[in-house]
Design a protein around this nucleic acid. Structure first.
Lengths: 291, 291
DNA sequence: GGAATAGTGTCTATGAGACACTATGAT
DNA sequence: ATCATAGTGTCTCATAGACACTATTCC
């Protein structure tokens, strides 16, 4: 962050009073989190993209699903990123150690920089978090004016969510079986924006590795792409492509302990490389013609 | 926007009171706008990317430059997008008709959809506006907790900005001669994020046409890219490339009235085509290696 | 005519994708 | 042996960029 001149002038009292509380209407600021992970479906067992949802108990939208979220603790000088991590930790029941986190701590930027906010740090290990957008249409919450800063989170397969202090039933829902009409407030729109962002980011960033363990096979990486994009990829071409992008993955010189359950060669293990941008990108198939 | 079930339950009074004002600390919500345009430099006359800035009169940061912005009029149920347009109109002195605007009116989404919010509509014709990100670090404004939703605006060459009601001196500043240290608050960071977003969006969207008039030559379009990316492009290859991307530009079957001032062929005129995404994209040169 | 600007032809290198093939391991 | 999974070879087509060239217009 660039240096900025001192904000303090000679007559401190004069400008400290410059914001007359009557000059603006205060609003409530919340964070909502679109938390995505890859896990096995409960029914078929196939790997699929899941989103963390909570079942609302109270009005409004009682009984509807919603994204985890809550008020920013402004009185405690909580940063927006920190609030997102806290909500996520509370909702998943994952170690609510109130640690600071999320990359470019101060700015709460748009996340375009992909600042590897992730790293390895409890409460939630290997979490990638980035700001998605802010939703503040009047009337989006019938109770009062609420401006919500939405976050997008990627995590490797997490344990089953257990309701935290909010006593709401949190669970992982496959995104492709989720009826948008079941979501409260404007959360269907937020989820839709989050999914599109996730799909796009897999193309030009190594973010797929945020969904895997620290070491992974090319096949596991492909399964991430297939789950997020929702379409099968050619294994052979994918393999060669991934290895050809500089800095995407790094060989560990080890292999899996055994081949597939029903036979098959052992797979080489890789870890995430140093690249923050994929060059050339892995473009989604489909969407041929212009849109 | 997907249909959402009715928020209203049987006992309306009960949940309308559910948000106890003591349960959260209200914060001030503002919008800041990174308004970009291409215009001729005052000194050399060359085309360059300019950003709209205001010179701050009062404390804090008196005398510093800042991005135009101000409070969201929450008491009047003003949407975030509307607030951005209003601030921009006020600051540029451009027809402060308080019109509603900005694409996906309600949602205030992240703008990734590139909803052609632009179109032709006063107050500011051919304006493209999208949300950039939200900046809410505690302490970013020394007076109080302020969460600022930043917007990115692209417009064709606008008239000289005249200070609006805020009595601040608004002016267009070339981005490459702007000292980041001169900017107030965290506006250097916001500007930097906005510039990166603009540069990236030129690659895969037809947004460059938002900087031109309704009809333009391929050379004018190239000058937009050169100004935003800050590097020269090969005229011949750029020409062929632009015409080869389906839906980018559309031939008007007319040409400029005359060739260049010192000779030269007349250029064919184009208008923006229907594509919202460029396929294949126009990738920036430079940045060879990864990272 | 000469210079400037618009626009095209052509060659090369690279990457994406189709498809067939080899390599290794579980049963 | 047979099947499943990992990984490679090779061909074709599309595209990016270098470079040279033609076309048109102003002076």
């Amino acid at each position: 962050m660039p240096a900025v001149g001192s904000p303090h002038g000679p007559n401190e009292q004069a400008w400290l009073a410059a914001y007359d509380p009557r000059a603006f209407a205060p609003v409530a600021v919340t964070v909502d989190v679109v938390a995505l992970t890859i896990r096995h479906r409960d029914d078929t067992g196939a790997k699929a993209l899941h989103v963390l949802t909570i079942r609302r108990g109270g009005m409004p939208y009682a009984g509807h699903l919603a994204l985890p979220g809550g008020f920013v603790r402004a009185a405690e000088d909580e940063d927006l990123d920190d609030a997102a991590v806290r909500e996520l930790a509370e909702e998943t029941g994952l170690a609510a150690h109130g640690g600071g986190e999320a990359g470019q701590s101060r700015g709460s930027g748009s996340g375009a920089a992909n600042g590897r906010a992730t790293a390895a740090r409890p409460p939630i290990p290997r979490l990638h978090l980035e700001q998605l957008g802010t939703y503040g249409a009047p009337g989006r919450d019938p109770r009062m004016r609420v401006v919500s800063v939405a976050y997008l989170a990627f995590a490797p397969d997490l344990p089953d969510a257990t309701a935290g202090g909010d006593a709401a039933a949190a669970s992982w829902t496959p995104v492709d079986t989720l009826d948008p009409g079941e979501l409260a407030f404007d959360h269907a729109r937020i989820l839709s924006d989050g999914l599109e962002r996730a799909r796009a980011k897999l193309e030009y960033t190594p973010l797929a590795t945020a969904f895997t363990g620290p070491e992974f096979t090319v096949t596991e990486l492909r399964e991430v792409y297939e789950a997020v994009w929702g379409e099968p990829l050619h294994p052979g071409n994918f393999h060669r492509k991934v290895l050809s992008v500089p800095g995407f993955v790094e060989d560990t010189d080890t292999t899996t302990a055994r081949g597939g359950a029903r036979g098959g060669r052992r797979a080489r293990l890789y870890r995430a490389g140093g690249a923050r941008l994929l060059h050339p990108a892995l473009l989604r198939p489909s969407r041929e013609g212009n849109q």
